[in-house]
Amino acid sequence: MRRLRTASERNKLTQNIGFTGLRLAALITVVPIVLVVVYIFWQGSPAISWEFISGFPREGMRAGGILPAIVGTFWLTLGTGIIAVPLGIGAAIYLAEYAPDTNWTRAIRIAIINLAGIPSVVYGLFGLGLFVLFLQFGTSIVAGSLTLAIMTLPVIISTTEEALRAVPNSFRVVSISLGGSKWQTIRRVVIPQALPGILTGVILGLERAAGETAPILFTVAAFFLPRLPTSIFDATMALPYHLFVISTQVPGMPVQIQYGTAVVLLTFVLSMNTVAAVIRSRARARRQW
């Protein structure tokens, strides 16, 4: 190898090696994601038709559509959002802006972090015990939404808290020096600045809720219920559980329908992601510090 003459040449080489390594690392993480998405869409898109999306399952789910599962997942995600979003954001605002740094609030934070690590099937059991049986909601959309909401809360709380803490403190001081109250400062300066981060957390949390099987298994999901729910106390089919059922529980299931269902679930989640990305980039374009 030619001897490198100057320090700057050596630096450049190190830099190039570094950048190549980083690019490679980025590529390696992207490849599997792309492969999964491409493979599922390739296998599943032939099954997608108007009937598949808007029809009811027939012939023991081996034909027809998956409308009840789509509608069920929609209501569950909405219900989870209605419960978890205000609660989670409220808790995060309290923790980030108001709570004094005491052992008590530190314990709350540790509890939240640990909640995020609990396996989802445990949430399912908890929901079964508390909402379905003890509170007698039955296997229902309320019970499922509440269970999913509890599972989602830690995600929403910790991302929102982080987003609030990322807002420079000098903004708060300036707002207060101009005669702003604490709440006015939070509402008019801090939250608008943190909004992209908050939305990211909310959508990440709701996406996870939309895609989870275990928490809804005992609390809401129906194996086969070819009608739409009419009240929040109805059980319902839901996409992730339906996918599990048709992949493992029904013999002679056409592969196309399995992948078709996966395509619908993936589209649901990816479109939430896209909405989040759009909102984020719009907000970032407006962000000014």
């Binding site: 903004f171 962000r287 000014q288």
Partner: peptide, 13 residues
Amino acid sequence: VGIVFTQPVVLPM
């Protein structure tokens, strides 16, 4: 009693 700081901090607006 208003105050102007050493570092100008304009609000993000």
